[in-house]
Write a protein that binds this DNA or RNA. Structure first.
Lengths: 224, 224
DNA sequence: CCGCTGTTCGAGTTATTGCTCAGATTTACG
DNA sequence: CGTAAATCTGAGCAATAACTCGAACAGCGG
């Protein structure tokens, strides 16, 4: 009883069905994820079936369902792993820039975003659209420590904007932070997906900075 | 032979398998689309099966495959119809603003975009993500007459920007127009999808105008 | 009213899928 | 070495899907 309850809680957190206790089980899980990723890359989402995953991973279908409640969970796990990995890599840099120039922080954030989206897109367009793109970050991409949802990230950005009030002014910080975090991500994602060659334009970074300013700078315009 | 070739061409253009010549066939096609739309709205994409569509439309599966090469084509047709309809509605207004203020044109464009995305999202999130969101406009949303692809729309915007050179300056107009057309659409789509309540913020429209300026205004900054 | 073409029918074909479960196998550990 | 827990097996179940095709039916020009 006690143990079953415990497992349920852990399942919630990890997205797994059973938590592996022996080493070989962890290998199996990795093999499954790797196999699924491989099939995804080479044959597309629709080719990712439980049978094929099992075959490629060198295990049986049963083993697969020992740890994943369903096929979707595997695809999501792939997305999550990449996002987690990328945001862990990005965290130190962003944290370092946290209390410094807002522009620099945002630039770094955008650069990381592009990296992540390219990585995810590399796993195939269909997968990207159905699973990766809309997935929210489960952990912080910066600005904080510990697990942080995408909503939380928006909230953190709002607070950051308020703390930079002197160079930002006052207005709808909620809207601004949402567009800054989610909107810009989608914008960059579209760029990555449809016109990757434009990423090399020297005009891009300055433009992004200006867009960020347009989102954050609420001070009355001198020119108007 | 001649006729078969002709049909192939028409299929390409309309996305249909056979072109209806009698009136009842057109009714059937409409009934199919309507039925599919209804199921989509009430039960989600995965519930949209050929059998169910046929049943609800009061026809047989065979009739369905007479006109649509496969199920996807039906879903796409739904997307396309909405986009076509919306852009036809929008065309006069945008054309009228074409040679006037750039800001006003863009504002109108964004407003229309929000409308369209809300309409599409109303058909369900999964459908929106899998079929609608990434679909490019098959016809002009404005700025021109006749069928215009999304790429063409970007090109038109680029030209428009160049024609407004005096208030725009010179730089990467290609990047700017892409972000203005596609990027902004995705940004607004995200807003519509995730935080529709922010659409009512009085800060939104001014912010969008400022963002557009940040994308288009390449003149050297006086403050820098 | 004939005959031709466009249209509709819907049972049947083919295929595959996600997932279960009873039992075999491996590991941990006293 | 023995036993209980963890792990793995894979044939088989149940479900349902997309799509075909030969035959029936309806509209229309002559």
């Amino acid at each position: 009883m006690q143990k079953t309850e415990q497992k349920k809680v852990e399942r919630r957190l990890s997205g797994l069905r059973n938590v592996p206790v022996q080493a070989r089980a962890s290998f199996t899980i990795d093999a499954i994820i790797d196999a699924a990723t491989e099939i995804l890359k080479t044959q597309g989402v629709d080719a990712v079936t439980t049978r094929r995953i099992a075959a490629r991973a060198g295990v049986s279908v049963g083993a697969l369902y020992q740890y994943f409640p369903n096929k979707e969970a595997i695809l999501m796990q792939i997305s999550n792993r990449i996002m987690d990995q990328e945001s862990i890599e990005a965290s130190p840099e962003l944290f370092r820039l946290n209390r410094q120039s807002l522009d620099e922080l945002l630039q770094a954030l955008f650069q990381r975003t592009v990296r992540t989206e390219m990585h995810l897109l590399g796993l195939g367009k269909d997968f990207y659209r159905r699973y990766a793109r809309h997935m929210q970050f489960g952990r912080a991409q910066g600005l904080g420590r510990g697990p942080v949802s995408s909503d939380q990230l928006v909230a953190n950005m709002a607070q950051l904007l308020r703390s930079h009030a002197e160079e930002v002014g006052e207005a709808d910080t909620e809207l601004a932070s949402f567009l800054l975090v989610r909107g810009m991500r989608m914008m960059l994602a579209t760029l990555v997906e449809e016109r990757p060659e434009l990423l090399d334009s020297p005009a891009l970074v300055p433009m992004l900075v200006r867009i960020s300013r347009a989102m954050t700078d609420f001070r009355p315009r001198s020119e108007d």
